[in-house]
Design a protein around this nucleic acid. Structure first.
Lengths: 239, 239
DNA sequence: GACGGGCATTAACATTTGTTAGAGTGCGCT
DNA sequence: AGCGCACTCTAACAAATGTTAATGCCCGTC
């Protein structure tokens, strides 16, 4: 059941069976969310954290003028609101971008982990640190990359992250985002988003149809994106 | 000596004397950095984390075309590379934007804290989570705010953060950034950065000269920025 | 006091990005 | 089959942002 979480945490350092059992025992009930439903509401104070077992979700904020910005995309194995365990109040919402199957971990249990399982605590902490590293990469992409490069970088990142949790199919993966939603990831208008996707298609490094992205030339895509996966900390080492 | 750190961590939850002593004992040597010097190099694997006692620093990445993007600004009381304790490899550099006085905390000591002091561990973890929350706010600002609003938001954020560590002077604070550096924060060209600063000056909510920013109309500045400090988690509550 | 360097500012022009509008496409529903 | 709906794609034009270059200002050095 928690396989995606084991894969996610386990990419950074070995997870013992005892630790897996601890994580298991922290989980309470499961739930399914439909596309567009809020998994966590902005302003709420959840008493549990949400782990994605299957589906794609995103963190977002909405401004007064109606503009929406996604601040992260969350794949299976991600704790979408682990930070709320200590931050307490959600300063953003989390929405399901595809049908999502999730399971909840009680904060009281997570707290117990911090009291009794230092190594597992560090791995959970690390999980939120990688989150931050991804945020930083997004900031760089938004500020200093060309839009084509930004999109290419996003494709590289998603491919690698999905590969870790075994959600890729060869060089393809499912990306159930409309162009309007993608525009809210990159911070563009829908029209320009469409232009940028067209540009990336035109250079021939990806094919993109039916919400399926296929990487045709990984090397060149990585080059366009200046993608260096260091920030994802995928090296397994003692933490 | 560690007063700024106590103020920073203490804003979220009470710090006991024992915890302060533990932090004290984690510190090793101090050092000064001149403007422009790298405090931590990209690609390095530090064995200690760096706490700013005085000065302003920034995390940054540089792209192949020479473009630089700051991903965060760090004020006194900030652990600029606490994340490297678990991330291990620095995927970005950290540079001194003003003369910086820092002190180093051994990773081995931080590890010991995670083994023996769960509450303090949670506070340190929280510190990195606030970091992430700031990143998210920056992503929103870069993607969906007008440039004027983005700058206004930055001013609000810095003012509040500096106030916590008692580095403000009434409604003024020192901001030793050139417009070129500021441009690398907002992801703009220098010329446009100059236009945006001019625009913010023109509406009369701030005065900005000699690297000193004075907020003339906090209420209206906050309105322009749509600034809501929730993400900084400044409420003191059990964590 | 003359000189030079870094920084702020402005202008003119080029390029990117947004806006508004509409046409085309695929798909589920009746 | 026909309809409606959401989404993709394009065009034409408007606005924002970047580039290049020049000017002025402040300040430290000789």
């Amino acid at each position: 059941m928690l396989e995606p979480l084991y894969l996610n945490l386990g990419q950074h350092d070995a997870l013992s069976d005892a630790e897996k059992a601890l994580l298991d025992s922290a989980m309470t009930f499961e739930r399914h969310f439909a596309i567009g439903q809020d998994i966590v509401a902005s302003g709420s104070r959840p008493t549990y954290s949400t782990l994605i077992l299957d589906g794609l979700a995103a963190r977002y904020k909405v401004l007064e003028n109606g503009g929406r910005q996604f601040t992260s995309l969350q794949v299976p194995g991600d704790f979408v609101d682990l930070h709320a365990f200590l931050l307490k109040t959600m300063d953003h919402g989390i929405v399901a971008l595809s049908p999502c199957h999730v399971i909840f971990a009680e904060h009281s249990k997570l707290r117990a982990i911090t009291e009794e399982a230092p190594h597992l605590t560090r791995l959970l902490w690390l999980d939120t640190l990688v989150d931050g590293a991804i945020h930083r990469e997004w900031i760089v992409a938004m500020g200093r990359r060309s839009k084509t490069s930004h999109l290419a970088h996003l494709v590289c990142e998603l491919f690698v992250r999905l590969q870790v949790v075994e959600r890729t199919n060869g060089m393809s993966f499912h990306l159930p985002l409309s162009q309007a939603e993608l525009a809210d990831v990159l911070g563009l208008s829908v029209v320009h988003m469409n232009r940028v996707i067209g540009a990336l298609r035109k250079v021939g490094v990806v094919s993109w149809a039916n919400h399926t992205v296929t990487i045709l030339d990984w090397h060149r895509l990585q080059e366009i994106a200046e993608f260096d996966p260091t920030y994802l900390s995928m090296m397994r080492e003692p933490r």
